[in-house]
Every structure is written in structure tokens, then in C-alpha cells.
């Protein structure tokens, strides 16, 4: 919104809380990137650091919520102001969940690095992860710029993440069927893939929130979802 409030301290409060959300988004992007870098480089030290670095994200969410509640109580915002504050709170909750997933990926990394690599799964995960990080980055830019077109585009990009997830799921099933020793690392890699896929969902939810914030209503069309892993099977050749 271009025009400013007559009470300028309201604008300052809003800018501050938006700044905290961006800071949180930056930390979350770094966490996700580091979690996968630790996996690809088999760097358990970096993995441990990612586990520790989740706490500042949680604290930021707490601070955003406290400031948002304060704004609601003291300013009693309506219309676009109300939608901004509600959207910031929801976006912060989504970012916090993404942070949790990054931490979970890092935990599994400490196990995965002790096992032999499973095909090119780690690189596929990295590609999937980069897609999600770009989604988070773009949706936060859209958030700050009130850019509904970019937000809607990010929302649709989640489907691409789902498709990579499907492919990786199938690939890891075949590795497990080929050699039992692949089962343990593959199971962890599957959970990591699922975590990244969920991060994409959260980025898409933030995109929906940006749409609501700008337009006053959620997107009317259903978000395309292509995650088929919950129903996927592979036939075992008995011969």
C-alpha cells in the first residue's frame, strides 16, 4: 500500500514486524540450504550446526506473534491493515514449520552420512530443495511488494516439487528392492524428501496468504497437487 497512516508510528510498527518476517525467512532459507549441503557433502558438523540454529527461528516467530498481538490490541486494525497482520502471523507459523523440517533433515543427515550413498538421490534432493528455497525467496519478495501475480505463480510452482518428489520416491523404492543395505539410508532419504515436499506446501500456503492479504480473499481455484507418493507401489518381480 502506497499511502501512509496518519498515525505514523503505526507504519513504523508494521515495518518493524515485516522486517522480522523477512529476517526469519532469510534464516529459514539458510537452514534449508545448509541442511541439504550437509547431506550432499556428507558434512555432519554442518548438520549439527543446522540442528542448533533452529532456536533463533522459533524465537523470531515468538517475537513476531507478540508484536502482532500488541498491534491488534493497541491499533485495532481493520481492512488491509488487519489482513497484513493476520497474514504475517500465518506466514511466520509456516516459516517456523519449514525451520523444523530443516532441523529434521539435519538430524537424519547424521545417520545418512554413515551409510553408503544411494545413487544420485542426494543430488535430486538438492535440486528439489533449491526449488523450494526459490519459492520461499520469491514469496517473501511478493509479500513485501504486495505482488499477487508472483505469489500466485509461486503457489503453482509447488506442483513441480511434488513431481520431483514422486520421481525420487519411485527411484528410492527401486534401490531398496535391489539391495537390502540401501533400505536404511533410503528410508531416511525418503523422509527428507517428504520434509522438503512439505516445505514446498508451506511456501505455497504463504503464497495463498499473500493473495488474501492483497485481494481480501483466498485464491478461488484449488491448488494443483501432484504428490502421489501416498498411493504409490512398485511390483516386485518374483522370478
Amino acid at each position: 500500500m502506497e499511502s501512509t497512516h496518519i498515525v505514523q508510528s503505526f507504519d513504523r510498527d508494521l515495518e518493524k514486524i515485516k522486517g522480522l518476517l523477512l529476517e526469519m525467512g532469510g534464516l529459514v532459507e539458510t537452514q534449508l540450504a545448509d541442511a541439504i549441503t550437509a547431506l550432499v557433502n556428507r558434512d555432519s558438523k554442518l548438520g549439527k550446526q543446522v540442528k542448533k540454529s533452529d532456536k533463533p527461528i522459533n524465537l523470531l516467530e515468538q517475537e513476531i506473534n507478540e508484536k502482532a498481538v500488541r498491534l491488534l490490541a493497541l491499533r485495532q486494525p481493520v481492512a488491509a491493515d488487519l489482513r497484513i497482520i493476520v497474514s504475517i502471523m500465518k506466514a511466520a507459523a509456516n516459516l517456523e514449520r519449514i525451520g523444523d523440517y530443516a532441523k529434521n533433515i539435519a538430524k537424519r543427515t547424521s545417520v545418512v552420512v554413515k551409510c553408503p550413498p544411494v545413487g544420485s538421490a542426494a543430488n535430486t534432493l538438492k535440486r528439489m530443495n533449491t526449488m523450494v528455497i526459490n519459492m520461499i525467496n520469491d514469496v517473501l519478495d511478493a509479500f513485501i511488494a504486495d505482488d499477487i501475480e508472483t505469489a500466485d505463480a509461486v503457489r503453482l510452482r509447488d506442483e513441480e516439487v511434488d513431481l520431483v518428489h514422486n520421481t525420487l520416491f519411485r527411484e528410492l523404492l527401486t534401490y531398496m528392492m535391489e539391495d537390502q543395505r540401501n533400505i536404511s539410508p533410503s528410508m531416511h532419504l525418503l523422509f527428507i524428501a517428504k520434509n522438503i515436499e512439505r516445505c514446498g506446501d508451506h511456501a505455497a500456503q504463504i503464497a495463498e496468504q499473500v493473495h488474501y492479504m492483497v485481494a481480501g480473499s483466498l485464491p478461488e481455484d484449488k491448488r494443483p497437487k501432484s504428490d502421489k507418493t501416498s498411493t504409490m507401489t512398485l511390483e516386485v518381480d518374483q522370478n
Binding site: 499511502s3 481492512a79 488491509a80
Partner: peptide, 11 residues
């Protein structure tokens, strides 16, 4: 204009 008024903005 409604938005600007009810949110206390300079319209």
C-alpha cells in the same frame, strides 16, 4: 477511499 479512511490513512 473506504480503505484509506477506515485504516486511518491519508486518502
Amino acid at each position: 477511499r473506504t480503505q484509506n479512511y477506515i485504516t486511518g490513512r491519508i486518502g
